[in-house]
Design a protein around this nucleic acid. Structure first.
Lengths: 210, 210
DNA sequence: GTATGTGAAGACCTTCACAGCG
DNA sequence: CGCTGTGAAGGTCTTCACATAC
């Protein structure tokens, strides 16, 4: 399997490259590692090494074929198929995510919005009625959900994660400010506002410029 | 300056340790690296090495004093003072962030919500009227804003960032799906939904279970 | 006995610099 | 000549393992 060989650090940059290609003029058929690097904000040797993991073959003296590279990136990232997403937690953030729609372009569709609060069930969010958390397993099976986005309070996050894992989901995007314990084979990515702000203040208060 | 010596990887874990301390029973006065590691989801040697960068001194055979460690973490992260934040872009996500309030606990206060869209100006979001982007510089000076949260569309992000930098802000939390170019001395942290989802699908579609 | 603090080893990541190809 | 692809060098980060201190 080719994927097995791609280092994690490279994987995390592939989506950036893919998006960067979209920033090129539509007329541009070819693109150098130098140019891609400048849009993506990384070193050009990095770009070349990263792309070499895809088995990508640019043309020396010319660069990479934009259309082909885009196809290879989508392939590597598994974006040739669509994904069904469940959003759990319909508070402020959850509601905003349900309405956001910025990732439908990439083939992600929110096919369920769940909440533990019975009072919220039935309310329409992002064009769908909120469903009760108890139906999770059923919904996952029926609608082929493969990704869960957690936007619950921190205190509820671990319980919900356990439930999500029991329902067979292997990919979790966690917005709750908590570190989740999950079994091997389940992948969690954490997006944590407070953490990011605190990293910023570290640099603000500590060393000077640079 | 002590901060200068703290590696970036360590800095990014300090907020997690700080929050993890809050998960301990209120009665617990002392905490081992082992316990902290398990809550924070890292290796215990990592915890010890990270904390040693703070000049922290645990007690051998006992562990770390919880209250003291919390104080040291807050100190290192610059959380002994409050920070005034401007939120730019009052769309779905921006509105949710304005209402969120989950980081006020840590001393961050949203003291301005701005938007480029004249139609939105004056509407109340998170208890404040939306103000026009043109007033940015003035607002930053008047209210001592030191952090900007960007929640604009990707296409506008770079222009807004330029403006924010010109207003003298040195810390940006960027939710727009774009890589920002900023001068040396300005720190940008990117939070990118689509990127995170795509990293998840890489693992879903590629290799099997870990 | 128990848990910290840390040198040393090893894994991983980035950058350089240039050979090689178009 | 220009740009890719990559060995080699140089960093950074993580983990181990144990001396050290309470």
């Amino acid at each position: 399997m080719i994927n097995k060989a791609i280092p994690e650090a490279t994987v995390s940059r592939l989506p950036v490259y893919l998006r960067s290609l979209g920033d090129l003029p539509a007329t541009q058929a070819t693109c150098s590692s130098e140019q891609l690097a400048s849009i993506a904000g990384v070193n050009s040797a990095q770009v070349r090494k990263d792309l070499s993991h895809l088995g990508s073959h640019g043309t020396r003296g010319v660069g990479y074929n934009v259309a082909e590279l885009r196809a290879q990136l989508r392939q590597a990232l598994g974006l040739t198929q669509g994904y069904s997403v469940a959003l759990i937690g319909a508070g402020n953030l959850g509601t905003a995510l349900a309405n956001y729609g910025g990732f439908e372009v990439w083939g992600f569709e929110v096919n369920a919005v769940l909440d533990a609060d019975a009072d919220k069930v039935g309310r329409i969010v992002g064009g769908r009625p909120i469903e009760k958390l108890e139906s999770l397993e059923e919904i996952v099976n029926e609608r082929g959900i493969s990704i869960a986005i957690l936007a619950t309070p921190a205190a509820a996050a671990q319980d919900v994660a356990d439930r999500v894992v029991r329902a067979g989901i292997k990919s979790i995007l966690n917005f709750a400010p908590a570190v989740l314990q999950v079994p091997q084979g389940v992948e969690v990515r954490r997006v944590d506002l407070s953490t990011e702000l605190q990293i910023l203040t570290f640099h603000l208060s500590g060393e000077g410029a640079v």
